[in-house]
Design a protein around this nucleic acid. Structure first.
Lengths: 239, 239
DNA sequence: CGCGAGCTTGACGTTGTTCAACTAGAGTGG
DNA sequence: CCACTCTAGTTGAACAACGTCAAGCTCGCG
């Protein structure tokens, strides 16, 4: 049943993010005591989501912090027909951390991009542990800072660059930070790509077409291969 | 020597953010022990900046966290002639916190918008204190989260709304979060406003003119008064 | 075999930037 | 005290970049 191409990757994880990360293997929690880990395990809930299902809504009461154990998830804002994807969260990362502080409401919605397994943690338990365990608090700080910094860069990209530059940025980002290869199956629709880059769906398609015609990428349906990363870099730089 | 107008505000603080906040009055540090406070005081440096002076450069080695004790400051990114103001930091707030985590380089530059007094703290000392004092770490988390959330909103505004909507957003934000009044003296040039909203300077001027002609605001030079906040709200909502 | 969602294309209109010119006010040096 | 310059602000006209609309296409799926 395997195609000739799949022979290159013979192992089981043909599809990335498909393996479930065990709850006791999450780096953030390694500094916890046995007792704390037990508390965490008791209050943890594992949830299954199908592709396209909503995990939590924008504006809903925020009672949990989430960890993506399997699959990929998107955070997004949807206001009067305008959609913006705030972030792509692949397996191995937390989301919903902002609800640890500001108000008691989620500031964005989250939806599964692929079938996913999500661990849900009680916000009170997390807060309490942060209060007792400075290492945990520091690591949460680090995660938030990483989010802030990458948001700054995207902020600049989306507000200061023209469409090709933005598209180049997002393709490079997907390749580098999410897939770790130049050759991958997109879990994003054209509309998702549009909402990530702040471009209309039609323009998104046109730019991908331009890139293809210039031999920079190879796209067909959901398959995407970056042929000339250095050209994308240049397009990203010139805006 | 006082003009008739200045009689309205007879007290010393005609100009907001002009009073220096004492170093031992910073809320973030109230949970520290006497010893810790002494260490902090020993390693703290107070710096004076004139309007327009650079406090730290984008990409510079990050060795400090800063607190605005007096004045107002802007964080900005400047890449190949494209400028974007990331945030306005009025007296009473920290900046440079991202350098507590990600790499050892500032991810943006900072410049004084008015004459300012800045306290500079050693990053190593801060990190060490966070490691020992969970309450401090938690409060830093809260500050970062607040930044993230407000950045999400600006992100949406700048990428999804048309120019009038963006301008309305920034005027409302300045009025509500910075000046706490509808009637104020701008410390921002038209160019600054442009770089805050991601609009060209010329368009910025034209939109302000439109708002004035519609009786929504009153602007002359640096003075700005919001006459019809409800109209700005509506413009903000319709995009 | 037909249906529908996602995708694609072209034509058109709008929005917003760019360019160039002009003005006003704030120093600065003679 | 006055010309001189320099910067910030302002205006108009031309142009480019994108979004919108409307139509057709394709592929997976029942």
């Amino acid at each position: 049943m395997t195609t000739s191409e799949s022979n290159i990757n013979t192992s089981a994880n043909e599809y990335p993010f498909a393996r479930i990360i065990p709850a006791d293997m999450i780096p953030l929690f390694r500094s916890l005591s046995k007792n704390e880990k037990a508390t965490l395990a008791r209050t943890r809930i594992a949830l299954e989501f199908k592709k396209g299902e909503i995990i939590h809504k924008h504006g809903a009461h925020a009672a949990n912090v989430f960890f993506v154990a399997r699959g990929v998830v998107k955070s997004y804002m949807e206001i009067s027909n305008k959609n913006l994807i705030i972030g792509i969260v692949p397996a191995g990362n937390f989301f919903g951390l902002t609800s640890l502080s500001v108000g008691n409401v989620y500031h964005y919605g989250t939806k599964a991009l692929t079938d996913s397994t999500i661990y849900s943690y009680d916000i009170g338990v997390m807060k309490e542990m942060m209060r007792k365990n400075p290492l945990l608090a520091t690591e949460v700080t680090d995660m938030l800072n990483a989010q802030l910094v990458s948001l700054y860069d995207r902020f600049f990209s989306l507000t200061q660059k023209q469409l090709p530059g933005r598209m180049a940025d997002i393709l490079l980002c997907l390749s580098r930070e999410i897939y770790h290869t130049h050759n991958f199956e997109l879990f994003l629709s054209r509309k998702d790509l549009a909402e990530l880059t702040g471009i209309s769906t039609e323009s998104t398609i046109r730019i991908l077409k331009d890139f293809r015609e210039d031999g920079i990428i190879d796209v067909s349906n959901k398959h995407l291969q970056i042929l000339k990363p250095e050209k994308l870099e240049k397009i990203s730089a010139t805006g």
